[in-house]
Simulated scan of single mutants.
Amino acid sequence: MRVLVTGADGFAGRHLCALLRASGDEVVEAHGPRAEGMNSNALNFDIADEAAVRAAVEKARPEGVIHLAGFASVARSHGNPARVFAVNTQGTVNLLIALREAAPKTRVLLISSGEVYGPVTEGTRAEETLPPVPLSPYAASKIAAELAGEQFFRSYGLPVVLARPFNHLGEGQDPTFVVPSFAAQLRAIAQGKASPVLRTGNLDAIRDFSHVKDVVAAYRLLLTAGVPGQTYNVCSGTARSIRAVLEEMLALSGVAARIELDPARLRPSEIPSLVGSPDKLRALGWQPKSSVTEALREVLGPGLRAAPGAPSHKP
Rank of each mutant, 00 (worst) to 15 (best):
F152D: 00
F153Q: 05
F153C: 07
F153V: 03
R154Q: 11
R154S: 11
R154D: 07
S155C: 13
S155F: 10
Y156K: 07
Y156N: 06
G157A: 03
G157R: 06
G157T: 06
L158W: 01
L158V: 03
L158K: 00
P159V: 05
P159T: 06
P159R: 03
V160P: 00
V161A: 02
V161Q: 01
L162A: 03
L162T: 00
A163Y: 00
A163P: 00
A163G: 04
A163I: 00
R164D: 10
P165G: 06
P165R: 04
P165T: 11
P165V: 05
F166N: 03
N167Q: 09
H168T: 12
H168K: 08
H168P: 07
H168S: 14
H168R: 08
H168L: 13
L169Y: 09
L169G: 02
G170S: 12
E171A: 15
E171L: 15
E171S: 15
E171P: 05
E171N: 12
G172F: 14
D174R: 15
P175C: 10
T176F: 12
P180S: 09
P180L: 11
S181Y: 14
S181K: 09
F182R: 02
F182A: 03
F182W: 11
A183T: 09
A183R: 01
A183Q: 05
A183L: 10
A183Y: 02
A184C: 09
A184D: 10
Q185P: 04
Q185C: 07
R187N: 08
A188R: 12
A188F: 09
A190Y: 03
Q191P: 03
Q191E: 15
G192I: 08
G192V: 09
G192A: 06
K193R: 15
K193E: 14
S195T: 14
S195P: 10
P196W: 05
P196V: 06
P196D: 06
V197H: 12
V197N: 09
R199D: 06
R199Q: 14
R199M: 13
T200A: 04
T200F: 05
G201I: 05
G201R: 02
N202F: 04
N202P: 08
L203F: 03
L203P: 01
L203Q: 02
D204V: 12
D204Q: 15
I206G: 01
I206S: 02
I206T: 11
R207Q: 09
R207Y: 10
D208F: 13
S210Y: 04
S210L: 15
H211I: 14
H211D: 15
V212G: 01
K213V: 15
V215S: 01
V216R: 01
